[in-house]
Every structure is written in structure tokens, then in C-alpha cells.
């Protein structure tokens, strides 16, 4: 699905990602862990096409094509979805208007007729219900005044509406209480198929009890310093950051 080779990324002249290599195949779920500031969100943002970041080296192939060529909206149209760590508030734009525009642009890209108001409504209502989101949210401005948990559930709800192939979740678990965590995890697990690929960024091992990864990677200071299966997450939890820093030093020296 996606193949990242020696990716180097800078912002404002400062190198954040210093050579990332990662391959995610259809049907796989990869978890990325690492301390704050190690570059996890940067990686997610670059995949989604945030323009401020400068790619200084390496490449990303998505479905066999150069992803870095595409602007953000084209990436979304081709199936990339990012659930944001900090979803932005957009005053004056209702969820209904926002989602309808998004869905109809996706449909247009696939040469499908736009959904009429009735069909759109029945689809959106189902999916909101699944995520435990109140219907009155339709008329509320995107993320405005939402609690942390509401914002995260709203991200996963959007994921189910847009039906992407490559899903990146950036710390969707942080700030969630246990009930919300279960709803979100269930949303993700129901969404898993052999065709879809997942990159789940998390700070805590906790989420991985609910969403079980095929692979776990640990990122530190812009590099993946260790990869393994789900047991790596538990090991990391046990041994903490100092262990990571040691690994990082070894990786750089090699």
C-alpha cells in the first residue's frame, strides 16, 4: 500500500525526520510509538500532504505511485485518511455541510453522482450512531466547542464516512476515557479488512490492548530505532525512554 524510503523532512530549516523506512501492506496494521517530539505527527502530516513541511530526501510510494507529487485533497480522494492529533475548530462550517462537501468531492473524483440530501442524511445518521455521536452535531460547527473525546470520535466518524484505504490515526487515543476508547477501537476494528492498511500512532500501550497491531515500530529523534511485533509495545512500556535513547544511539552509530 505505502512504501516510505529514507524519508527526510525539515521544517523551518530544522531536520525532524532523519531517514524513515517503512512498508505497510494491505491488511496490515502498524503501530508507531515514541516519546513526544520524536517526529510521529510530522510523519503523519507529511503522508497527508501538509504543505509547510519540506521533504529534503527519500520517497513515498502509495499504491505504486509517487505520493509526494499529490496535493492533500488528491491524496484524500485516492484513499489516504489522517485522523488528526489536534483537530482544528472551524467556526461557521457545520459538520453536515463539511461532510457533504467532502463526500460529494470524493464521489465526483470517482465519477459518481453527488448524493442527494436524503441519501446523505440516512448514511450520515447511521454512522454517527455507530460512533455514539449525537445527531445535533450535524448542525454544529466543525470541532467548535467539542470536548477532547468528541473531537476524536468525530475523526473516526469521518473515517467511516470517507471509506479510505490507508488510515493514519495520530494519537486518537489520548484524552479518551475508557468508554470512548472502546467506541473508537471498535470503530477501527470493524473497519479493518484485507484491503485496508493502518498506521496507528500512539503514545501509550493501552490502545494496543483494544486494537491489536501486526507490527510495532519505535521512533525516536526522527528515526525508527526498533521494530517488532505487538510484544515490543509491552517491552517499551516496561523499560521506558532511557532504553529508547540507548537504542537510538546504537542505531546512529551503526
Amino acid at each position: 500500500m505505502i512504501s516510505i524510503k529514507d524519508l527526510k523532512v525539515s521544517i523551518e530549516g530544522k531536520e525532524i525526520l532523519k531517514g524513515i523506512n517503512l512498508e505497510v501492506n494491505p491488511g496490515e496494521l502498524h503501530a508507531i510509538m515514541g516519546p513526544n517530539g520524536s517526529g510521529k505527527s510530522t510523519l503523519a502530516s507529511v503522508l497527508a500532504g501538509r504543505p509547510e513541511y519540506e521533504v529534503t530526501g527519500g520517497e513515498i510510494l502509495y499504491k505504486g505511485k509517487d505520493l509526494l507529487e499529490l496535493p492533500a485533497d488528491q491524496r484524500a480522494k485516492q484513499g489516504i485518511f489522517l485522523a488528526f492529533q489536534y483537530p482544528v475548530e472551524i467556526p461557521g462550517v457545520s459538520i453536515a455541510n463539511f461532510m457533504r462537501s467532502a463526500i460529494n468531492e470524493l464521489r465526483k473524483a470517482k465519477n459518481l453522482e453527488p448524493l442527494d440530501a436524503m441519501d446523505f442524511l440516512s448514511e450520515i445518521k447511521d454512522k454517527m450512531k455507530n460512533m455514539g455521536i449525537d445527531l445535533e452535531f450535524l448542525n454544529r460547527a466543525v470541532n467548535e466547542g467539542f470536548s477532547g473525546g468528541e473531537k476524536k470520535r468525530n475523526e473516526i466518524f469521518q473515517m467511516t464516512m470517507m471509506d479510505p484505504d490507508m488510515i493514519i490515526l495520530d494519537e486518537t487515543d489520548s484524552g479518551l476515557d475508557i468508554d470512548a476508547l472502546k467506541i473508537v477501537s471498535e470503530g477501527v476494528n470493524n473497519f479493518r479488512t484485507d484491503e485496508k492498511a493502518f498506521l496507528i500512532i500512539t503514545h501509550y500501550q493501552r490502545l494496543l490492548n483494544y486494537i491489536v497491531p501486526d507490527y510495532v515500530h519505535v521512533i525516536y529523534d526522527g528515526r525508527i530505532v526498533k521494530s517488532g511485533d505487538k510484544s515490543l509495545a509491552l517491552e517499551l512500556e516496561e523499560k521506558g525512554y532511557e532504553w529508547i535513547k540507548k537504542l537510538s544511539k546504537e542505531a546512529v552509530e551503526n
Binding site: F84, I90, G92, V93, S101
Partner: peptide, 24 residues
């Protein structure tokens, strides 16, 4: 620009994203 990126990350073209924010 944060809102612009958010809208575009959902497949909304830059022109439509801009129009949505200005209309709001």
C-alpha cells in the same frame, strides 16, 4: 491555513475549501 489543510485532507479541493471558510 490549519483549517484549509483540515478541509483538504478530507478531499475538498483548495478552491472549495477557501470558499467554505470565506462563506462561514
Amino acid at each position: 491555513m490549519e483549517a484549509m489543510f483540515y478541509l483538504q485532507s478530507r478531499g475538498i479541493s483548495p478552491g472549495n475549501a477557501k470558499a467554505m471558510l470565506l462563506e462561514a
